[in-house]
Design a protein around this nucleic acid. Structure first.
Lengths: 347, 347
DNA sequence: ATGAAAGCGCTAACAT
DNA sequence: ATGTTAGCGCTTTCAT
């Protein structure tokens, strides 16, 4: 599979030694100039900078980070193409701009999720990382957190070795359910993604939303209907299509995130149904939700802000903080055209 | 700005030496086991693997890449949140899955675009990178290409030191214009992003599309109307809103990419116009374009395929190929509901 | 203010 | 089959 790359007749990049020789000084001197360290004469600085310039020298991060920092921040996302994650990354990238740190994003590739990517990031000497990994085990993270600064997004565990930024998923889900019930809906289905094997312990956003859904339903004496699908829009479309094709289709769908809601919207449209016949509510408030052709009722969980907050916590930790911090963001309902009053039931 | 991270009381990761000592062997032996190199007895392998396991040892990529490869592929994107780029990344990520290489994505952050990020990638010892950087100068890339394998997406220059994967933008734009003219449109506006200062030399996709637009118009004796906006959907929305609010609004808009087209669609919807009154055609065929609530006529330029192809070329180059390869993808028109016959003109 | 030299964690060439 | 050793490019004492 992996074959060693041929370094054949490639031009070698100039090293610090090359610069030192070109400037007629020592490596240590060059290093000091680069790091703005104490004790360099203007004359020395001039010479060295000239040599750097003419040789087009750039320090090797790999070599540097063997001693100190790499000034690289990792960001793991479970999936490419989820607009909410994109929002979070935008917030992170903006927050990091001009900080001197470089952001690198590592998508969990293929079937392998979570931990391997985080390892890969750590192996690459990032100074810390932000992750959206509901699937990794807390114990594993606790251990890793002793080694490197970590901020986890969307996890409700109260860790001691890493920070978390979460959204109050229970409150958000309640906003949705209250909204739908107020609109008179009684047959509300929940569309969510397959549960992770180890998600049992109440820590994962989708799991919390599902539970609140179930509780809200049973409290009103209504029957819960949960439909599971894959995480992508086409998956949700198919699942929703099947659900809505059933003879006793629900009058409302609470989709556990906006990507799923968009899939449900496609199914609704293709089946010739309107918001009057089927309300759809999502979760995330992706940018597209506010688009008038979509106009999706959803829960705003402030993705950009979360991303920015995560970066701030991480930089803090990199600066030396060791006690864990756990920030919770309060979500808000955005009512739009995709949810309507329940129409007359025929029974 | 940048302060050195405190390495305070962090746990050090075990090094190869730790493993060697724990197993009672030499570092070289450990290295050989890790790399599956020739000459390790089953007994040795067992001991070493046990030590690795119990210590939780992971090799440092930084140290490794100082000698050989880092098995890391970089992917630069100019912008977070453009669905077409996401498509390309998905193609790349899928192609790379299981190859032993880790993909890291570096978004061009803040106002600084292009080159600095590529430098950052190279500094981090990637074994090669794919970039979507219309803004960097070819000469600069030619020089860098001598140092490291590079594949550029969407650039039409015939480089000798890096590969390119492009879409036939001229053909694609012609598909759009022919389509709109066939539908009877005569007042067609073009919505595109601000030209880059150095984009003059015909190499950049949007520039090519704009030129074909202008040529098509003048060939038919029609007046060209080009509106420029920023790259994001809200930018396009605003620009389109102004354009469509003019007394003599066009009957069709050719948006230079789908993100812009979605913005135009928002403006059209908010102004209460329908496809009958204003046709909109995009470029890219992002997934959303096929959604029935959007149903955007657009040009499919096979993003996932491009991403996959770029990775294949890159891995090739990493294996040793040195002659440049330039692959061109032929785009296809996808006619959907956003474009209609031009309605009666009042003049 | 400047430089020599040790060492970071690894690989690879060379012994044994 | 296994170990020794010399770097890779940098930072960091410690001399000068």
């Amino acid at each position: 599979m992996v074959t060693a790359p041929s370094e054949s007749q490639r031009n070698r990049r100039p090293s610090m030694l090359d610069v030192a020789q070109a400037a007629g000084v020592s490596k240590a001197a060059v290093s000091k100039v680069i790091r703005n360290a104490y004790g360099v004469s203007p004359e020395m600085r001039r010479k060295v900078e000239l040599a750097i310039e003419t040789l087009g020298y750039r320090p090797s991060v790999a070599a540097r980070s063997m001693r100190g920092a790499s000034f690289t921040i990792g960001f793991e996302i479970p999936q490419l193409g989820n607009d909410f994650f994109t929002q979070v990354m935008q917030g992170a990238a903006d927050e990091l701009a001009g900080s001197g740190y470089q952001l690198i994003i590592a998508p969990a590739m293929g079937e392998v999720k979570g931990a391997p990517v985080l390892d890969a990031l750590v192996d690459r000497q990032v100074d810390g990382f932000v992750a959206i990994s509901p699937e990794v085990e807390p114990e594993w993270l606790e251990r890793l957190g002793k080694t490197i600064p970590i901020v986890l997004l969307g996890r409700h565990d109260k860790s001691t070795n890493y920070d978390t930024v979460t959204n109050d998923d229970a409150a958000g889900a309640r906003l949705v359910m209250d909204h739908l019930i107020e609109l008179g809906h009684r047959d509300i289905a929940h569309l969510t993604i397959h549960a992770y094997p180890q998600a049992a312990e109440n820590l994962v956003p989708h799991e919390i939303r599902r539970r609140v859904y179930a509780e809200s339903m049973s409290r009103k004496g209504l029957d819960a209907r949960v439909t599971y699908s894959g995480p992508l829009e086409p998956d949700a479309y198919q699942a929703a299509f099947r659900l809505l094709s059933e003879p006793n289709r629900p009058t409302a769908v609470f989709a556990a995130n906006d990507t799923l809601a968009i899939g449900a919207l496609r199914a609704r449209t293709e089946l010739g149904l309107t918001a009057e016949e089927l309300s759809i509510v999502g979760y995330d408030n992706i940018d597209l939700a506010a688009h008038p052709i979509v106009s999706l009722t959803t829960v705003d969980q402030f993705g950009r802000e979360s991303g920015a907050k995560a970066i701030r916590l991480l930089l803090d930790r990199i600066q030396g903080r060791t006690e864990a911090r756990h920030e919770m963001i309060t979500p808000e309902l955005r009512v739009r055209a995709s949810s309507r009053f329940a129409t007359m039931q025929l029974f």
